[in-house]
Design a protein around this nucleic acid. Structure first.
Lengths: 346, 346
DNA sequence: GTTAGCACTCACTCCTGTTGAGTGCTAAAC
DNA sequence: GTTTAGCACTCAACAGGAGTGAGTGCTAAC
């Protein structure tokens, strides 16, 4: 599609713009060591690239700026995950090792490390708990009408949910029910819980417990997970350091979006595994039309269970960001697997 | 200390400044209906007020601006909680009733309502769980070395903490211990838990369980509460709407402080009950030298258990903010008491 | 096809004059 | 001895205009 020379020039322009944040002109490009033609030639090529939609001009007599299409071409054809120098990798390893060894705050620390390494906003979606297996189920009644359901997974996560009891259920019956469930459902992955509750257990239950129908409905509710509170943002103010975000209005829009982070959750679905890059207007969020989102998933026992990502200006250092994300996702996956597969280690 | 006329003028200046955010001059004041002297007289008085430290001048030939001391005098001597018009109260009641009826998200909704009513950032410290009484204690071992401690309170809150087990403790002993503890400690307020663990239970335990010493230490850790994650901020971007915060640098500092909200926690200690106002440099946080914090506490069974507050520019509408906080604190207290004292209501 | 040269565009900066809201001082009026 | 009118002075903010420089697009020569 693009000639070799166009490819070369487009790359030079984008890389220059990524670091300067200023529209880049033909003369600047002609001075680069890998460029051997004059500024006039470059001007002609730039004009062609603009016609093709890869570049934009803020106004006549200004330099050119990459368009969304330009960035898309760049990330698809030009970048290789880039460890600027090998010192970086050592530093990252160090930082990761220093900060992330407790399971409890691993997610939060991961987000911190990500934002620290990249200087962009980090987004982390906590591990998908549905894959985890049931260790213990318990229902504790508080008074005649209310109770708390507690679910503990093999991996030590505790989820709890308040439920309303149907009137006329005695604590004794409740206990009976829970005892049965604990034996029957032990070791079931959480995502199967609801299904198994209905298919297998209900027959058994019917014999033992009155009003099993209502209780089942309630238990069904209790085991339904909730994804929104697993999304964590860190370094939300980093965007203000970018020269193209010196306008209060734009920044405010973005930060308001961050405050209602549930709107972002769908973009971090861990089932879309592997590296995902969404540039500028490619995502429909108006406030983020000048931002890109790069995400990848991390795994537990080979299956993707959560997502980590970087949110920055379209003009972000894609090479570095991708390298960092890959590295951290791998580290996090390894950490989860050593920690949760029964091996111990402080 | 201040003459009647000085009092009147200071009040006029501050009220004007609160609404205009511009340095206020003598002529502006002289035009106010309650002021009957000429601008020249006011100039003289303003000069005196500046000497006394109640006013400041950004530069010669600019109007005057209230100093921290000026605001302090204002909140101590001039404001009455102010329901601008009685419609407001009806609106607040409506909003409160519409949004806050589920216990689970009451805290979050409270913060939303606060920020919506005042247009400033809202801070809410979740209810102090230490006053709540123990309903159920449980330890679930995950493998040979790790376990999860779960504490359920009478009010249905669930706290959990991962603990490391000393090697050589059998699950059977663990169960024995938990059974004893559940009977012994039932209905103990959480803040007494650690103490009672050591004083009363340990003697009993010594007879039943091996290695009670280590286990006690671990249990002690498990029942220690953690306050930081109870602090919730809402409407953090509101500060950007204030005309005196159009400078990116200042805003960034404040938002970074918000991101590390644990630094703010000490300021919201619910044990300091009642209305607290902290103005400008009165609090030591450099980033917030142009901000004020107004807080009050809400209660459960007559005791203060949590804090709600508003964080805005020193130039905030103190009258309205105080009225809103009082109103919401009362509503929240009532809501907690009807919901948690065993009465039911969907 | 490539490049040098040139006219043209346009944001940006610096300078200058003007405006107006504000002060402080003084002398007259109350 | 207060209060007020009057006046000179200060200074941020705004507007207009000249100059600068980075950039383009076009054309003619290599």
């Amino acid at each position: 599609m693009l000639s070799d020379r166009q490819h070369l020039i487009l790359q030079a322009i984008i890389e220059n713009y990524i670091h300067s944040a200023e529209p880049v002109g033909s003369r600047t490009i002609s001075k680069r060591p890998e460029i051997s033609f004059s500024s006039a030639t470059i001007r002609n090529e730039m004009s062609d690239l603009e016609d093709l939609g890869y570049l934009e001009q803020p106004h006549t007599s200004a330099g050119r700026v990459p368009s969304t299409k330009g960035y898309r071409y760049y990330v698809d054809n030009m970048i290789q995950p880039d460890l600027e120098n090998s010192d970086d990798l050592t530093n990252w390893k160090q930082l990761f090792a220093d900060r992330i060894f407790y399971f409890e705050n691993a997610i939060e620390q991961t987000a911190s490390v990500l934002t620290q390494l990249t200087n962009y906003t980090a987004v982390v979606l906590g591990p998908e708990i549905f894959e985890h297996r049931l260790k213990h189920l318990q229902i504790i009644s508080l008074n005649e009408t209310q109770a708390v359901a507690i679910i503990v997974t093999q991996t030590g996560r505790v989820e709890n949910k308040r439920i309303d009891l149907p009137s006329g259920v005695s604590p004794g019956e409740m206990e009976k029910l829970v005892n049965i469930l604990n034996t029957k459902l032990h070791d079931t992955p959480l995502w199967k819980l609801r299904q198994r509750l209905y298919q297998e257990v209900s027959v058994e239950l019917k014999r033992h417990v009155e009003q099993y129908e209502e209780m089942l409905t309630i238990l069904g509710k209790a085991v339904d997970g909730d994804a929104t509170d697993r999304l964590l943002l860190k370094g939300t103010t980093k965007i203000m350091e970018q020269p193209e975000f010196q306008d209060m209005e734009k920044v405010k829009e973005i930060l308001e979006l961050f405050e209602h982070s549930e709107q972002l959750t769908p973009r971090f679905d861990p089932s879309r595994s592997g590296l995902q890059i969404s540039i500028g207007q490619e995502h429909s969020l108006e406030a983020m039309k000048n931002c890109s989102i790069v995400t990848t998933s991390y795994t537990f026992n080979g299956k993707p269970v959560g997502t980590i990502g970087i949110l920055g200006p379209t003009r972000m250092e894609y090479g570095k960001v991708i390298a960092v994300l890959d590295f951290i996702a791998l580290g996090l996956s390894q950490m989860l697997s050593t920690h949760l597969n029964g091996d111990e280690k402080k």
